[in-house]
C-alpha cells in the first residue's frame, strides 16, 4: 500500500524522487481520513516552498488540511487535473493524485523523512 521507494512526512505527505526533482502528494491514509476530497489549493509554478512549511490546502466537505512541503525548492509542475478532478486524490493518492513537483534545493532533506516501514508504524498499520 505504501511504496517502498517513497519517503513520508509525519503530516502524511509522500515524496518521490525523480532525478533531481521530487514529486509530492498525500498518503492513502490521509486521503481516507479526509473522506471525499472536494478541493485542492496548490501554489503556482515558480513558487518557492520550504521544508515542512505549508504549500497548499486539501479539503473535504467538513475538513481542511494544510499540505506541508517534504522538501525545499521551486515548484516546477502542478497537477492541473486536480482542479476538475479532486477525486483523484481519493482514487489514486500515490499516483494520479499527486500534487506538485519540486526542484529540490537540498535532496538530503528527504533523509529526514520516514521510510515506508516507519510511516506504517506512525499510522499504526505496521
Amino acid at each position: 500500500m505504501y511504496p517502498e521507494d517513497y519517503r513520508y512526512s509525519t503530516e502524511h505527505e509522500w515524496a518521490k524522487r525523480e532525478d533531481g526533482r521530487v514529486r509530492v502528494g498525500i498518503t492513502r491514509f490521509a486521503a481516507d481520513r479526509l473522506t471525499d476530497v472536494v478541493y485542492v489549493e496548490l501554489p503556482a509554478v515558480g513558487t518557492q516552498v520550504q521544508f515542512m512549511q505549508p504549500f497548499g490546502v486539501v479539503e473535504s466537505v467538513k475538513a481542511a488540511s494544510d499540505l506541508y512541503a517534504p522538501v525545499s525548492g521551486r515548484v516546477v509542475e502542478v497537477n492541473e487535473r486536480l482542479r476538475e478532478h479532486p477525486e483523484l486524490v481519493n482514487e489514486d493518492p500515490h499516483g494520479q493524485g499527486w500534487m506538485i513537483v519540486v526542484e529540490a534545493e537540498d535532496p538530503s532533506e528527504l533523509e529526514r523523512l520516514l521510510d515506508a516501514d516507519a510511516y506504517r508504524r506512525h499510522i499504526g498499520e505496521a
Binding site: Y39, E59, S60, V61, K62, A63, A64
Partner: peptide, 9 residues
C-alpha cells in the same frame, strides 16, 4: 464551501 468558515477552519 464551509471549509472557509470558522467552525471548520
Amino acid at each position: 464551501l464551509q471549509t472557509r468558515e470558522q467552525h471548520i477552519r
